[in-house]
């Protein structure tokens, strides 16, 4: 009874199978690159996490040590961009969005520590790279609207920014431990400024909303550090 029925043209399913197989092949290709990026991100965060235990004056050594892994990540993002631009951007971007965010966060932290402007002297903390500047560092486009190619999205940037705030919150406490009472104040202002920015966004119920909801607790954490310092008269006088 199930003789080859006239109902289904076999070409229909053959065609579909081909399409799906092609997508699988693309996924496999991307997966390799993304895994490489993941590894390099871990290296970046491994090196940069030394900032938490390094006195301000020695930061240049940390920045220098991070150079290589950051270069590697930049290269891998370049490979990813090349492979991904052959496909419709949003068809596969969920595959790498996470890893790209981690890379962004690493570079944001590196730049905040002074890596972007480092000129051989003292590292100068507190810089926030804009989305465009991040794109320049990574050598990929940002926030594309009329071209369907690989780029860094606003959402990825903002998510990375929330991770940066978390990292800095941690740094505020650790700086105090290292006897550095100035950076917590810098961080306090920075985190507040970022928080103020997030507050004007109209967020929907998504991951960005959840992450940005967490920011107020980070603001409070840093405020607590500043409070502890001022209570003990440890805050450096302004205009010193």
């Amino acid at each position: 009874m199930s003789a080859p029925s006239g109902m289904i043209d076999p070409a229909i399913f053959e065609g579909l199978q081909t399409k799906v197989d092609e997508d699988t092949a693309v996924r496999d290709e991307l997966k390799d690159i993304i895994q490489a990026l993941e590894k390099q991100n871990r290296n970046i965060s491994f090196v940069l996490s030394r900032a938490h235990s390094t006195p301000y004056a020695d930061l240049p050594s940390v920045l220098k040590a991070s150079e290589e892994s950051i270069q590697n990540a930049i290269e891998t993002v370049g490979n990813l961009a090349q492979a991904a631009s052959k496909q419709p951007y949003y068809k596969f971007n969920s595959m790498w969005s996470r890893q790209v965010q981690d890379a962004l966060q690493g570079i944001l932290f590196w730049a905040w520590l002074g890596g972007k402007d480092y000129n051989g002297n003292e590292a100068k903390c507190g810089r926030l790279l804009t989305l465009e500047e991040l794109g320049e560092v990574l050598k990929v486009p940002t926030n594309l609207k009329d071209k369907d190619e690989f780029h860094i999205t606003i959402e990825e940037y903002l998510l990375a920014l929330t991770s940066l705030v978390e990292e800095l919150t941690r740094l505020a406490r650790n700086a105090v431990t290292l006897g550095d009472y100035e950076r917590p104040l810098l961080i306090n202002q920075f985190v507040k400024d970022v928080f103020a920015g997030f507050q004007i966004l109209n967020l929907k119920n998504d991951i960005l909303r959840r992450k940005s909801d967490g920011l107020k607790y980070r603001v409070k954490d840093v405020e607590d550090v500043v409070y502890d310092l001022s209570l003990r008269n440890l805050v450096p006088k302004k205009g010193e």
Partner: peptide, 13 residues
């Protein structure tokens, strides 16, 4: 915040 103009752009998009 000095980042306001940037965030205003983000908000619009």
């Amino acid at each position: 915040s000095p980042f306001m103009p940037m965030f205003e752009g983000f908000r619009a998009e």
